[in-house]
């Protein structure tokens, strides 16, 4: 029984880290119809920027991490302005290929500039694990899940409550009407992509404290984030979180009770089964995306 409880907690912790990646991806994918293969690279850059602020120039985590996210958002603005804006009206495949190009280019540039030697951002504190009976949780992992939840809630409120958030939703529901209402849709595209990049970087910044920072870290996480997003339903935050938890927990159960070698297989079989029953994803709207 105890090992079962520990298994579920492990799954929730791992799922929490997937959720952080998936929310940014589902946002860009669902709202902008952009299959952003370079999302993982922004995640990786977020981790490198955090390394720069927290380790190289020794800023406290609480300042370094927001700064890293900010730099990634600025970089997102540049990518949107110079690479994506010229192709927004073109075929979806062109945009997708462009992000594939970025996915290959960015880690290689980082490898050449900084070498592939892995780096590590030390966590802000070290603490003994929380132990309750036979259940153990590492405090830093718990903190990361809590901060992830906080970032996701903040983001959700931003989209629902602020003028900019409403303008974004309006733009992606009907671009022409939004323009007629006086919304500068070009700016909205730029901000949306930039925020998506910021979310990816937030994931990288948080996870740089528990995982290694190296050029290939983005590519490794992207596959899982895509699976989570599709499972949850495109463009749906709650769906992304639920999808992340389902993948995390099912991996954990399969890893504990079958073999860790098969845990990805079990999680992805589950994904296929759910999509067979509900092709739009667990919380996806039939026939379209809720914007």
């Amino acid at each position: 029984m105890n090992i079962f409880l520990q298994t579920i907690i492990n799954g929730v912790i791992v799922g929490g880290t997937y959720a952080l990646m998936a929310v940014g991806l589902t946002f860009v994918l669902g709202f902008m119809d952009l299959v952003n293969f370079a999302h993982g690279e922004l995640y990786m850059l977020g981790a490198y920027f955090t390394y720069f602020f927290v380790v190289t120039i020794a800023l406290p985590h609480i300042i370094g991490i927001p700064l890293a996210i900010l730099v990634a958002m600025l970089l997102g603005l540049l990518i949107e302005r110079f690479l994506l804006r010229p192709v927004w009206d073109k075929d979806i495949l062109i945009r997708m290929l462009l992000t594939v190009g970025l996915m290959i280019l960015i880690p290689n540039v980082i490898t050449v500039m900084l070498t592939a030697v892995p780096k590590k951002v030390p966590p802000p504190f070290t603490m003994s694990p929380f132990i309750l009976g036979n259940v153990r949780v590492a405090p830093i992992q718990l903190l990361i899940v809590l901060v992830s939840v906080f970032i996701i809630v903040l983001f959700h409120l931003f989209m629902q409550r602020t003028r900019l958030g409403k303008a974004m939703r309006a733009t992606f529901q009907d671009k022409e009407v939004a323009m007629a209402m006086g919304i500068d849709t070009k700016k909205i595209y730029a901000y949306t992509f930039s925020i998506g990049c910021g979310m990816a970087a937030a994931g990288g910044a948080m996870l740089s404290m528990i995982y290694n920072v190296f050029p290939a870290m983005g590519a490794i996480t992207t596959t899982k984030a895509f699976a989570v997003v599709i499972l949850g339903g495109l463009g749906n935050f709650a769906g992304a979180i639920l999808g992340a938890l389902i993948v995390g927990v099912s991996e954990s159960i399969a890893g504990t009770y079958i073999s860790s070698g098969y845990k990805d297989a079990v999680a992805f079989i589950l994904l296929v089964l759910i999509l067979m029953v509900k092709p739009s994803g667990i919380m996806g709207k039939k026939g379209g995306i809720e914007k």
């Binding site: 105890n2 090992i3 520990q6 298994t7 492990n10 912790i13 791992v14 880290t17 036979n134 153990r136 992992q141 996870l207 995982y211 290694n212 870290m217 490794i220 991996e251 954990s252 890893g255 504990t256 860790s260 845990k263």
Partner: peptide, 13 residues
């Protein structure tokens, strides 16, 4: 893989 909670739990038990 980057998260080994599952493996470590099995080792613990």
């Amino acid at each position: 893989e980057t998260n080994y909670q599952v493996n470590l739990t099995k080792i613990l038990s």
